[in-house]
Nucleic acid binder design. Structure first.
Length: 482
RNA sequence: GGCGCUAUCGUCUAGGGGUUAGGACGUGAGAUUCUCAAUCUCAAAACCCGGGUUCGAUUCCCGGUAGCGCUACCA
């Protein structure tokens, strides 16, 4: 079998969204599995909507996801001559013709047709006598180039995912290949490039399924051999509508900003439409590539479930080595206006990170739920106060605990625990009550790692200081107000 | 409207002419105890509807319904 060549071809009219990322991923997995070539191509033939900086952003997202490409990125805007010559070739061979209808004329005909609904181009310009056609061309009358679709017969193909697809040619209108400004449309540029780049498998979203027959017609007219097509089901929002901005975060970059790890996003996306063998769902890119198979991809659309993504992220977060996690946390802190300076050394910083690691779902959690571990500037969560600061005499108790802890020679877990439990006993208070109240004092939260681990990581001075601060706070007359 | 595609727990899915219809996320309950967003255990939860084929359909076929896609000088 000839070498496998696939491509991912985003258009820079928006950021890389999760649907595009999944398409890119499946191309990547297939290429790696087949030891083929993965090509990146930027489809920027729509000059009005394409933004150069978005190309950069898309490339960055691809790199962040770890989807490395072997060739490209190629830009269609660099290859306009190819498309024009292909259009000319098709015209010469009688497979295409100039159309002088203006957008306004077409629009008028469209709205005239029964409520403006079912309307196909009426092929007016197909009938123009050759002499008149030449005259208008010579006169420089603006025109597009349309493909001459056969009136009879049907076009069919075998999709790797969807199976046999067939469309009657009479259902297909004479679509535009070249716009009046000389820019190619998608149907022309995509075929021209896939032919030129010797693409063997076109793996793309199912939104292109209905358009594929048009493109097959172009392949045939150009005398090119067909690639294998594999269309991927769409990714939907919770309301089963195609995922879009109004569903909130849909771009890969937005998930990165939320503290999602690329490995988790890749793993999650891979499972939207494809299932590995066995029960294990947590698989590396490489492990997935070893068994990836386009023919087992699902044919029905999938709803994107952020909850499962978050869960999967927590799995990856937990499995991360400290050496890899620590820098990621530092970056996240920086983004949130924090830093690691609260810890005296690199080793201490890592200890803190390690303590938090098992209970964090995203990197963001380190700077949000874990805020008190990286700055003294934190609030007492009202819910936590309501839950654990309602006992009477807490101010005094915390004060006493502060002084007792201040006396300790060792601040190891055993030492602080003995001290706290001793105080609780002496005062006739349940240890749990004091522990929970102390947790709020030290972290501002009702939920945190084990208290004595927290103390150790914060250190003696900071622990004592925060206890005194909480005691002061509770001593104020309005401390009971939430 | 026309054309195309799709249909298993709330969600992602496995399965397949006879199964207690399996797993994962989420949800609920319990365990643990110092909080849980950690950990462990258990539970509830699905074959869209109607015909046909068949001894037997969730599975195969047809129809309906619903959803999605395409129907641009967007991709």
């Amino acid at each position: 079998m000839a070498d496998i060549r696939v491509r991912f071809a985003p258009s820079p009219t928006g950021y890389l969204h999760v649907g595009g990322a999944r398409t890119a991923l499946y191309n990547w997995l297939f290429a790696r599995r087949m030891k083929g070539v993965f090509i990146l191509r930027i489809e920027d033939t729509d000059a009005d909507r394409s933004r150069p900086e978005l190309t950069t952003a898309i490339l960055e997202s691809m790199e962040w996801l770890g989807l490395n490409w072997d060739e490209g990125p190629f830009r269609q805007s660099d290859r306009l001559d190819h498309y024009r010559s292909m259009a000319a070739e098709l015209e010469r061979a009688g497979h295409a013709y100039p159309c002088f209808c203006t957008p306004e004329e077409l629009q008028a005909k469209r709205s005239l047709a029964e409520g403006g609904r079912p309307w196909k181009y009426d092929r007016t310009c197909r009938m123009i006598p050759e002499r008149e056609r030449q005259e208008r061309l010579a006169g420089g009358v603006p025109h597009v180039v349309r493909f001459r679709v056969p009136e009879t017969g049907a076009t069919d193909f075998e999709d790797l995912v969807f199976g046999r697809i067939q469309v009657e040619n009479e259902e297909i209108e004479d679509f535009v290949l070249l716009r009046s400004d000389g820019q190619p449309t998608y149907h022309l540029s995509v075929v021209a490039d896939d032919v030129d780049m010797r693409i063997t498998h076109v793996v793309r979203g199912a939104d292109h399924l209905s358009n594929t027959p048009k493109q097959i017609l172009v392949y045939r007219a150009a005398g090119a051999s067909l690639p294998v097509f594999a269309h991927l089901p769409l990714i939907l929002g919770p309301d089963k509508q195609r995922l879009s901005k109004r569903h909130g975060a849909t771009s890969v970059g937005a998930y990165r900003d939320q503290g999602i790890l690329p490995e988790a996003l890749v793993n999650f996306l891979a499972l939207l439409g494809w299932t590995p063998q066995g029960d294990e769902e947590i698989l590396s890119r490489e492990a997935m590539a070893q068994q990836f198979d386009l023919s087992t991809v699902s044919r029905s659309n999938a709803v994107f479930d952020p909850e499962k993504l978050a869960w999967m992220n927590s799995q990856y977060l937990r499995a991360l080595s400290l050496d890899r996690l620590a820098p990621l946390v530092e970056t996240e802190l920086k983004l949130s206006g924090l830093d690691s300076s609260i810890t005296a050394s690199r080793a201490e910083f890592k200890q803190t990170v390690a303590l938090l690691q098992p209970r964090m779902r995203t990197l963001k959690d380190f700077s949000e739920g874990g805020r008190a571990f990286f700055t003294d500037d934190f609030e007492y969560d009202p819910e936590a106060r309501k839950k654990f600061w309602k006992a009477a005499g807490l101010s005094h108790l915390l004060q006493k605990l502060a002084e007792k802890l201040a006396q300790l020679k060792s601040f190891e877990v055993g030492a602080t625990e003995t001290a706290l439990r001793g105080l609780a006993d002496a005062d006739g208070v349940k240890a749990g009550v004091l522990i929970n109240a102390t947790r709020v004092a030290l972290t501002g939260q009702a939920v945190a790692p084990g208290l004595f681990d927290v103390m150790k990581v914060l250190g003696q001075a900071r622990t004592v200081g925060r206890l005194r601060r909480a005691a002061d706070f509770l001593g104020k007359p309005n401390a009971g107000n939430f």
